[in-house]
């Protein structure tokens, strides 16, 4: 059994509910043991470093130092691209620059040598042993399921920090998805930015970023978008109804009161479900819909699963 120190990230406790349940299920099935870092704190995400560079390093360094003290032999893994970027950057800078290490240790009040690696879920699922275990754990096979794998920017960039070889057309998630029978599509927005927190603070300017990703996935024939980050997931899913409504308003010239989005789900003909890669794996490994809280998705996934698994089997899930 392979073990990692686990940094869940704040979204795991709220909006990323179904992805978190799927993570537990999948890693349990493939013999990967995630040891949660004791009393971990928020990494600062996209906000802390925009205010203060010292804070942008110190916040992620604290849980890393804690992991290093408690589990010196374990690499750290996280399921969020933003956490990954911050943790990995802190690790990198502390290693590369003695004065940064001095600063970080002074601020967090703990020794921190950055001895171990920071990894994301795609890294640990792509490990050959893990991939063989995934293959052995699959109970269901998807048919006619075209998937657009969306990596998000911070899982691959900046290259000098992440070490990603291909930042324009990464393939790790495509290869994992293909194990379940899903057919990854070729598309252009694998690592385009979803807008991250700017979907909140610069909504007008950032909406097209998510919209272009959704449009390109549809244009390339995808039935589902797969994600490896709860922030990407939320931006592509929660605001999809609004995006479709605005697009329709533009097309037809008829406006609708925005809060009607509350009661009217996005048009199923136009909406595209968004799942995390671990949710796809969990369903293929036999997890039920209730166990994964699949009904928590903003864009309903029932039709997608029924289409990809056939009637009887999908009934067992939903």
């Amino acid at each position: 059994m392979k073990r990692y120190a686990y940094f869940p990230g704040c979204a795991s406790e709220s909006t990323a509910k179904s992805a978190t349940l799927a993570n537990e299920f999948v890693f349990g099935r493939i013999g990967i043991d995630l040891v949660e870092i004791e009393d971990w704190n928020c990494c600062g995400a996209t906000s802390a470093h925009t205010l203060s560079s010292a804070l942008g390093l110190a916040l992620p360094a604290r849980p890393l130092a804690r992991a290093e003290a408690d589990w010196p032999e374990l690499d750290v893994v996280t399921g969020c691209a933003s956490c990954y970027a911050r943790l990995k950057l802190a690790n990198h800078r502390v290693r590369a620059d003695k004065s940064e290490r001095y600063m970080v240790e002074k601020i967090i009040g703990k020794p921190y040598e950055a001895k171990r690696e920071v990894l994301n879920f795609l890294d640990i699922l792509s490990d050959p042993a893990a991939r063989a275990n995934i293959g052995a754990a699959l109970l269901r096979r998807f048919k006619n399921l075209k998937a657009a794998c969306y990596y998000g920017c911070l899982n691959v960039r900046p290259a000098e920090i992440t070490g990603a070889e291909n930042r324009e057309n990464p393939m790790a998630m495509d290869e994992i998805a293909a194990l379940t029978g899903a057919e990854p599509v070729e598309w252009g927005f694998k690592t385009e930015c979803c807008g991250a927190a700017h979907q909140n603070d610069a909504a007008l300017e950032a909406r097209p970023l998510a919209g272009r990703i959704l449009d390109n996935a549809r244009a390339c024939g995808a039935d589902v978008i797969l994600t490896a980050c709860p922030m990407c997931q939320l931006n592509l899913e929660m605001r999809q109804g609004e995006y479709i409504r605005k697009r329709e308003e533009k097309r037809t010239g008829k406006a609708r009161f925005p809060l009607l989005d509350m009661v009217l789900p996005p048009d199923p003909e136009q909406a595209i479900p968004v799942l995390s890669i671990t949710e796809l794996l969990a369903v293929a490994m036999g997890a039920g819909g209730r166990r994964l809280a699949l009904d928590a998705h903003f864009v309903p996934v029932g039709r997608l699963i029924a289409g990809a698994l056939g009637g009887r089997e999908s009934e067992a899930i939903l």
Binding site: E13, N41, C42, S47, L51, D201
Partner: peptide
């Protein structure tokens, strides 16, 4: 810019709870 408003609220949030409280 609103970005600064959000980021300051975010850090205040971490200061109070240690983690981000999304709501």
């Amino acid at each position: 810019h609103d970005s600064e408003v959000l980021n300051k609220a975010f850090v205040a949030n971490i200061k109070a709870f240690g983690r981000n409280h999304e709501m």
